[in-house]
Computed example of a mutant assay.
Amino acid sequence: MSAVLTLAAWGLAGASLAGMGYQTVAVRHLRRFLGGPRPRPSARPAVSLLKPLCGNEPHLAGNLRSFRDQDYPAVQIVYGVADADDPALSAIARDGDASSDDRETIVVDPTGHGCNLKVGNLLNMLPRAHGEVLVIADSDVRVEPRYLDDVVAPLADPSVGLVTCLYVGRPNDGLWSRIGAMGINHGFLPSALVARAVGRHDGCFGATMALRRETLDSVGGLAPLQDILADDWALGAAVRRGGLRITLAARPVDIIVHEPDFGSLFAHEIRWGRTIAAVDRTSYMASVITQPVALAALAVLLGAMAWPFAGVLLAACAVRLWAIRAEERALVLPRAGLPAVALRELLSFVVFIVACCGRTVIWRGRRFTIRRDGTLESKEGIPT
């Protein structure tokens, strides 16, 4: 048995070394991406911005204001809620009264469409959108004035069917919001760039999805997504099946990370992990390579604390900390303390393990099971 454990420890140590190499590649691609050009669109077609809302989350009024303040000539903003008493409406009012002309439209419609409430909201909003280009952006997103130029410019290429945005986590007050933002900034964001560098061009992210109206019509619209949790991934897959490409906007957007407690953060990240694992389990399992510290720590435990494995662990800690500091500088982020870095590393590995071992998720107080095709099965819909 000891020989088997030692062999496993060497395997984990080797995986950790590979993970250290991954960290250096991720930093290089992040720097290259952020330093790239920001092309201006050759044309500026009319845009409809679709903002599905549910609840008055922190900083919502400021997020919405950033979309109103676009340096773009023809923009219609469509806000959508399912309930006339939704407090998100007060955030719109605080930011300035939405006009009744073609520039801003509020849709209040309780009509249900499947399990995915966001997609149901969008289906109710879509008939009121008039633009040639449709831009769907989540409520927690905050953008720069050049945002629409960034997402419209790639659509001048007829081979591009959808433009999406990477995102940087900007935490609300509190420890768990900071830990959640670190998971985005030092986990998701560099991993998405490495994935594209190795040929994975299927990433599509709900922070922004921009496409021509004719493209959306050609792939069957939004109705096929109404029971899919990963609606962004499914829309991107539909566009790719239609023979068109997904590309990234030249700059990431910000998302406001609000996690009031550990339970909220854990449920949120388990939902993310299980959603990815449901639609692409092989890639999700392979993503363990992005966690060299955890792999090296396991090697130390299985290898009976032998010095070669302890050396690998020390090297993994040093490389991972170097990568985090480099990413903080590139993204102009505040420097995280070492206890927060350690907590984030531990939580990332726990989330990975738990997400691999189940399909149940909690979403807006309702319990669902994610089927193997990514669709949702409601489990009683009871509050939790």
Rank of each mutant, 00 (worst) to 15 (best):
G273W: 07
M285K: 09
P145F: 00
E104D: 05
L338R: 15
A315P: 13
I77N: 08
D71Y: 00
E132C: 04
L7A: 05
A93W: 02
R240Y: 01
V141S: 05
I106F: 00
A3K: 12
G263I: 01
F368E: 09
L346V: 11
P110C: 08
D261W: 00
L162W: 09
G206M: 02
A355W: 05
L117Y: 02
V361L: 02
G203D: 14
G242P: 10
F67W: 13
M305K: 04
R142V: 06
I382M: 09
M305G: 11
I362G: 05
V198C: 04
V81G: 08
E377D: 13
R142D: 04
L89Y: 04
T282A: 13
K379G: 03
C357A: 12
F188E: 15
I382Q: 15
V135I: 11
A250L: 02
I370G: 08
L216D: 04
R371V: 01
V133R: 15
I256W: 00
L30P: 03
R196Q: 15
V143D: 10
R245N: 08
C317F: 01
L314D: 12
V47D: 06
R271W: 02
L331H: 10
M20T: 06
T208E: 13
G303D: 07
D86P: 07
E345G: 05
Y72V: 08
R170V: 14
T215K: 04
I353A: 11
A223L: 14
R371I: 03
R320Y: 00
P41R: 10
A192E: 15
L321I: 03
L175W: 08
G365R: 11
T6D: 13
I106S: 01
R68E: 10
A98D: 06
R212D: 03
P171R: 00
A3Y: 09
E328Y: 02
A326E: 14
G112W: 01
Q23N: 10
G11T: 01
A8W: 02
A310M: 15
R325I: 01
P87D: 09
K118I: 06
T275H: 07
S42H: 05
K51G: 01
F262G: 03
P252R: 03
L50P: 12
K118Q: 13
L193S: 07
R241T: 05
V288G: 07
A355L: 08
R271C: 10
I92M: 13
Y167E: 08
W176V: 06
P190I: 10
W233E: 10
W176I: 04
V219M: 05
A316Y: 06
P37F: 00
V143N: 11
S66E: 05
C165I: 03
P58E: 13
Q226H: 07
S99C: 07
D69N: 11
S378H: 04
A230Y: 11
R271N: 11
V319N: 01
D69V: 00
G55N: 06
R320F: 00
L162Y: 09
A156T: 11
R44E: 15
R200H: 12
A210F: 00
V300G: 10
G221D: 01
V163H: 08
A323H: 05
V107S: 05
D140W: 01
A286H: 06
I256K: 02
G161S: 10
A82R: 15
G221F: 00
V47P: 13
K51Q: 08
M125C: 06
L295N: 12
S177Q: 09
R241E: 06
G19N: 12
A82H: 13
F205N: 12
R212Q: 09
V288R: 15
P127G: 03
V354N: 04
A326D: 09
